[in-house]
Design a protein around this nucleic acid. Structure first.
Lengths: 148, 148
DNA sequence: TTGCATCCGGTACCCAGGTACAGGATTACC
DNA sequence: GGTAATCCTGTACCTGGGTACCGGATGCAA
């Protein structure tokens, strides 16, 4: 038998290659709810509509913007359900705040590192430099575990 | 029997509490070579010298500066071996470069996110805004897999 | 119809930096 | 000496984003 699904459907390997992702990743995304379960051939092989490739491109773009897979799944989901909410913009604004907070952290760290270099610290444990700035007890960077 | 190791030795729970780390973390650091194997009581309980608390403080400081545990272990190690190299300063300078690269990445991401907000994008997959800036195919952020 | 490429599901593994739990031994204190 | 608190080893699990491997089934072309 030639092929038992008509139309421009792609097999998983083709989708993976065209989108530049690993085949396993494709099934991983399916498990995570990022891409819908595709049709199957009579033998059980997946048959994807071509726009799946575009969807994967979009997912990768959102990842590059700093969204987690869970956030991407939610964004796709609320988009699909026709929610008229400006969800993406709100999420993007929240993400900007996150990114800026991270930049602030990194800037603080860079400042501290610069102090280490300028002071001429020569050991973590037995630094002999005068006015050694270690150990930076005030440096936070632990926002993930903060509450309230 | 009262205690069978003389002097100001601390038991693991005391070290953990004073340093503000989990007891498991202490043993994890020992496995990773960040802290030396301490003496043992006759029953097998660890007996730490008090400066272990300071060492843990230093480790945490180095982590806050962006060093991985492996890097911290190396820094402690070359410090202990009396290497006269200005290792810490060199490492700090390298770390500054890493941090700055990361800041650059995040700044690019922030710019892209701002474009999403300003353009009024309303969907990842079916954005209706004019001149939609998605999907940012040019955004890199994947330096970890680059070679050469 | 035969042979090779591809795909299937299930499971295990990778990174880092830990954390948790089980079941038994030791220590500390009254 | 009783008993609670602490500690021991070993092993498994966690997060996030995948990747690898296995044995078996399908797909496709000559």
């Amino acid at each position: 038998m030639r092929q038992d699904i008509e139309g421009p459907y792609l097999r998983s390997g083709q989708v993976a290659e065209q989108a530049g992702v690993n085949l396993q990743t494709l099934r991983y995304y399916e498990r995570r709810g990022l891409i819908a379960e595709p049709r199957r051939s009579s033998g059980g092989h997946r048959a994807y509509p071509p726009e799946t490739v575009t969807l994967l491109t979009v997912i990768k773009a959102a990842q590059r913007l700093g969204f987690t897979l869970e956030e991407v799944a939610e964004l796709i989901d609320t988009g699909r359900r026709g929610h008229p909410t400006p969800d993406l913009r709100v999420r993007a604004q929240e993400k900007i705040a996150e990114v800026e907070a991270r930049i602030t952290d990194l800037t603080t760290i860079r400042t501290a590192l610069t102090q280490v270099v300028n002071a001429g610290c020569d050991s973590l444990t037995h630094c002999s430099c005068p006015d050694c700035p270690l150990p930076f007890a005030d440096l936070a960077e632990d926002r993930t575990h903060e509450e309230s």
